[in-house]
């Protein structure tokens, strides 16, 4: 497959690769606006009720969030190394880097799930189990955004993990995908990482100083 001719609508393989890469960037532009809308709505409420949002945000588990930030950043480093390993045509490190990326991604999901469980026990889950007496209406709104944003992020991350595992399996079996595919999955992975880089301070850090 790797030496195959381009799909019929392309004149050359390099044209096809450029098109695929540009397509991924355009898709990520869509994603930026998708998450951007949510972050904008959240920011509007944070500006409108700074004290209430800060009080609610103090109930998030900042240590777990910080560990997860480190986990996800490390996974991105492995993803970047995987792309470099593909360019250097080194199959074994490539597969290992992809597996490390996926394992770290799964760890993130696991830690996040543990956080969700703790929050459920504490009565912080809107609609399911929410303790109004302690957190109030704006607190509920904050936690709705919290679950909405981190939940959508986790869905994106899960899709990324599946793609990385499929890639690792195919490369391990000696059936590597055509060249831009790994790079495209890498772009996607870094995008999911960057979304978290924005979510972490917005969600976990209000009300932590002073």
């Amino acid at each position: 497959m790797s030496e195959a001719s381009p799909a019929f609508q392309y004149a050359t393989l390099s044209q096809q690769r450029e098109a695929a890469t540009l397509g991924m960037w355009a898709f990520l532009a869509t994603e930026v606006l998708f998450f951007g809308a949510l972050i904008a709505a959240y920011s509007a409420y944070r500006t409108a009720w700074p004290a209430e949002i800060a009080a609610a945000a103090r109930h998030t588990r900042v240590a777990l969030g910080a560990i997860n930030t480190a986990v996800l950043l490390t996974s991105s480093a492995f993803m970047a190394t995987a792309v470099a390993a593909e360019e250097a045509d080194r199959r074994r490190p490539l597969v290992l880097c992809l597996l490390a990326t996926a394992v770290l991604g799964l760890s993130f999901i696991g830690i996040k799930g543990y956080e969700y469980w703790l929050e459920y026990r504490e009565g912080l889950v809107p609609a399911l189990n929410f303790d109004f007496g302690r957190y109030g209406g704006i607190g509920e709104l904050f936690f709705l955004f919290y679950f909405f944003a981190t939940g959508l992020h986790a869905v994106h991350l899960t899709i990324g993990i599946v793609m990385v595992l499929v890639l690792a399996a195919r490369i391990g079996a000696g059936r590597p995908p055509r060249p831009p595919v790994l790079r495209m999955v890498g772009l996607y992975w870094h995008f999911v990482d960057i979304v978290w880089i924005f979510l972490f301070p917005l969600i976990y850090l209000p009300g932590r100083t002073g």
């Binding site: 532009a29 869509t30 994603e31 606006l33 998708f34 998450f35 809308a37 949510l38």
Partner: peptide, 10 residues
């Protein structure tokens, strides 16, 4: 590409 995702989130 840039406006539709905002509607989707809304």
């Amino acid at each position: 590409v840039l406006a539709t995702p905002v509607l989707a989130m809304t």
